[in-house]
């Protein structure tokens, strides 16, 4: 009988501990603000170029659960969709060629799917955190680890800056080449983004 009570008590304690561990997950949302921007820097054998999207017009929301113990954010169905036709390279020839290189007619948007962010704190001020995203372009998905610089702004707003280097060939795309290859764009491009979110608990 004593043994029976001991087992019951042990089970109760274990169960309580488990409940206490699973409790610190919280669900929250970030609404993407309009002033978020993204630019792509590249080089040709003539000079360098930069293509910008300076406004984010879609009302997207990122939904995540936060593990309060590990400070890890896990996103669900959270994606930014960028209209490739809105890229402006500040040179009409390069703009048209860049859009064409990204196969804008077949696949008009660049998608950034947020998966996780590690060590995220609501009190961050220029702290660097790592996150995983999937980049979807021209029917190809490429997973990337990105370092964000996180800054908390007044009014429950968050600014996240980051950059990552990709190659056109990562997405089975061909870097633009003209005049039998004498005029060419380098395969490597650097994607920089500055995202602003409104945090909704």
């Amino acid at each position: 009988m004593r043994t029976f009570f001991f087992i019951i008590s042990f089970a109760f304690v274990v169960n309580a501990a488990f409940i206490k561990k699973s409790a610190p997950y919280s669900l929250a949302r970030w609404v993407v603000e309009k002033n978020s921007s993204l630019n792509i820097q590249g080089e040709t054998n003539i000079n360098s170029f930069q293509c910008d999207v300076t406004e984010y017009l879609k009302p997207d929301t990122l939904v995540y659960t936060k593990n309060d113990a590990t400070k890890k954010l896990s996103f669900t169905n959270s994606c930014l969709s960028i209209d490739i036709k809105r890229f402006d390279c500040h040179n009409k020839y390069i703009t048209e060629d860049f859009r064409s290189a990204l196969k804008v007619d077949e696949n008009p948007s660049l998608k950034i799917v947020f998966l996780t962010i590690d060590q995220f704190s609501n009190a961050s001020n220029n702290e660097v955190v790592k996150g995983i995203v999937d980049i979807q372009l021209a029917h190809v998905t490429k997973r990337a680890e990105i370092e964000y610089t996180v800054k908390n702004l007044p009014g429950n707003r968050i600014q996240m800056n980051g950059s990552h280097i990709f190659n056109f060939s990562d997405f089975n795309l061909k870097a633009p080449k003209k005049l039998a290859g004498l005029i060419k764009t380098r395969d490597e491009i650097k994607v920089n983004f500055q995202l602003f979110f409104k945090s909704i608990p």
Binding site: Y93, E96, D97, S100, P176, L179, G181, I183
Partner: peptide, 21 residues
Amino acid sequence: IADEYFSPVFRRAGETDWTFY
């Protein structure tokens, strides 16, 4: 001026490169 070669009126490098040479 060389930037203008990126204009869509110019053919992309590819199968017809040999014709240039």
